[in-house]
């Protein structure tokens, strides 16, 4: 009885997803800047999807046209191999968005599965968390670099290499959430009427941790975009011919003093994308945990 007397968070039930959607719309109405950030992210995603319609061939080499200034033909000029900088920037958007979304998605699915397991089974959970701690002791960027260099070159290898070090962070967040939810009276109520196993997880546990998991997923996305740029910048994992922002910066390195703008364009694009994703994550996190907005006494 005492469990029910305790103050409980308002539970969310899986059949109330429409309600959740309404909550989302209300959140957007109250936070205009989040709408703007979301629209900008959608715009960047569309640029990635429709890259072939927006720009010419990003791989076309033209030795006669090296380091040309911006012109009607090449809006942002050309690079050291005479390739169109604008086209490479546009196709680089596609590359970064793909890695960001793929890593966030895969990390969430695997991380939630492992985290829920670790939250419900005490012995198995303890073993999982030991492995998790060990994984987190290996610096993430270093692990990603090593994994990417061990696999065959390609986008898939980059996505896997970045996802592996990202999963333990999600597992840790999800397990903590599950342990919290397990103490809630609504879970005790669900168990007492005979709900158990996967239905319990899908109907009562997952819907109630949606917010914090989304926040963690946005952080995974931001960190994936940065790490993939680091890999490309160091020349690990993908061929330098494939247009990516990190790769563009690596190519601009040798002539940096004469052509700093070749470094600036991809650097700005990269920073903008990560900034947008981080702002989204921060606002979501404030919305999920309103205590953070409290005022101090002094």
């Amino acid at each position: 009885m005492t469990a029910i007397m305790e103050q409980s968070e308002k539970p969310v039930h899986a059949s109330e997803t429409r309600l959740l959607f309404g909550e989302g719309v209300r959140f957007l109405k109250a936070h205009r800047e989040v709408t703007i950030v979301l629209l900008m992210l959608v715009a960047m995603a569309l640029v990635g999807v429709f890259a072939p319609l927006l720009a010419g061939d990003p791989m076309a080499i033209n030795p006669a046209m090296r380091y040309r200034p911006p012109s009607a033909e090449h809006w942002l000029g050309t690079d050291k191999l005479g390739r169109d900088v604008y086209a490479r920037l546009i196709y680089g958007t596609r590359n970064s968005m793909t890695v960001g979304f793929a890593v966030a998605g895969i990390t969430t699915v695997i991380g939630v599965a492992i985290g829920v397991y670790a939250g419900f089974f005490s012995i198995g959970g303890a073993i999982v968390m030991r492995l998790n701690d060990a994984m987190m002791s290996i610096p993430a960027v270093l692990l990603a670099i090593a994994l990417a260099s061990l696999m065959e070159q390609g986008l898939a290898a980059v996505i896997v290499a970045i996802t592996v070090p990202e999963i333990p962070r999600m597992v840790r967040v999800v397990r903590a959430l599950v342990l919290g939810i397990r103490r809630q009276p609504y879970l005790a109520a669900a168990v007492s009427i005979g709900t158990r196993g996967l239905p319990l997880v899908f109907r009562h546990v997952l819907p109630n941790m949606l917010g914090p998991v989304l926040v963690q997923a946005t952080y995974a996305c931001a960190s994936a975009v940065i790490t993939s740029a680091v890999l490309a910048f160091l020349g690990v994992g993908v061929s330098p011919d494939i247009p990516s922002w990190g790769g563009m910066m690596a190519a601009a390195k040798s002539m940096f003093r004469l052509h700093p703008e070749l470094m600036l364009y991809p650097g700005l694009a990269l920073s903008l994308l990560v900034l947008l994703v981080n702002i989204l994550g921060d606002r979501l996190s404030d919305a999920v945990d309103p205590r953070k907005a409290r005022r101090g006494i002094l």
Binding site: A229, V230, M249, L270, S271, V274, L275, N278, D282
Partner: peptide, 27 residues
């Protein structure tokens, strides 16, 4: 907290870990 100084510092903080280290390096 929540004043102008706080907002400015926190805005720089979000920017700080959004701009990758090699971008700031070259700047």
């Amino acid at each position: 907290a929540n004043g102008l100084v706080d907002r400015t510092i926190m805005a720089f903080s979000v920017a700080g870990f959004s701009v990758p280290v090699f971008v700031t390096s070259y700047l």
